[in-house]
Design a protein around this nucleic acid. Sequence first.
DNA 1: CCGCAGGTTGACGTTTACGTAAACGTTGAC
DNA 2: GTCAACGTTTACGTAAACGTCAACCTGCGG
Lengths: 160, 160
Amino acid sequence: MLADLRRPERTFTIRQLCNEFKATPRALRFYEDKGLLCPAREGLNRVYSHKDRVRLQLILRGKRVGLSLSEIREILDLYDENDDGAAQMARSLKKFRERTAALEQQREDIDGALIELHQACARLEQRLAEIRPDLLPRAADYDQVLRARLDGHADAVLGK
Amino acid sequence: MLADLRRPERTFTIRQLCNEFKATPRALRFYEDKGLLCPAREGLNRVYSHKDRVRLQLILRGKRVGLSLSEIREILDLYDENDDGAAQMARSLKKFRERTAALEQQREDIDGALIELHQACARLEQRLAEIRPDLLPRAADYDQVLRARLDGHADAVLGK
DNA sequence: CCGCAGGTTGACGTTTACGTAAACGTTGAC
DNA sequence: GTCAACGTTTACGTAAACGTCAACCTGCGG
């Protein structure tokens, strides 16, 4: 019973969480500094509970989707202030939607950049073909194109 | 003849280029600091030639597609080292293709994030629908999303 | 008792692309 | 003469998210 690692009483050291989530101790302490985490202490040592672990998961997920730490903290705080949870959920939902919109915008920007790049590449290729065809891409570069095609993005980039 | 602004002898002040390209003097001086520009001097004052103007255009284009200043400098340097221009074009082409690949990767990352966000939103919406359907989005929220979208465009246009 | 592995708290360093003064010079209008 | 409008330089500030020391404590195996 003492050995059941899945029981909610189980606690974690900083290193355990770091290993599990591929983070560094510095990062966890940093999150704590920023108020995103506040693990218990055993003397000086940090002791992370399951709740802390969940918070960390949320933090990392937030990071993956591009939220800043302060935005993540806002969301986390919402869950803590909890009255009944619903209001916070609504606000989180709002945050998520805003982020969705921002990401979609970023995607458009990237697409624009890709178009510019594609045009620039086309110009360069044409000039090179005229002047120094020997400098034009071969096997290695074909590789790149092929990989892009497999990714399925080439279609969009190359004129849909 | 002195008045023909299109003649190649024509030069530009820092402010003229700033106005034309929506940049700040600070930025141009910064680019100079970083070795991206090196306008002539008339006493202390900077005097930009057409070539400088072209370089600035390239710099800004590079920024638009997400290149860092140091990457832009690499490309610019290539054009300067010029033997016959072809080799540099080939290397620029390579740079552009690398950036293309990087952007495509970013797009994938964004798509991944969008998927996560979408799932999270779906979960939240469902829970809310069960508990507090009244808190679900309506007209006002739609408004916000639209405004966020427009703001995003404005930011992009204004160079942010 | 030694040393190592792991924990702790500061505190400063890094990167990018400038913003923001401060303090000064030059030119032209009034 | 002096004020404004432009230009110049030097240099510190900013934001994000940690990295990288330094200097210390602490338990444990040998």
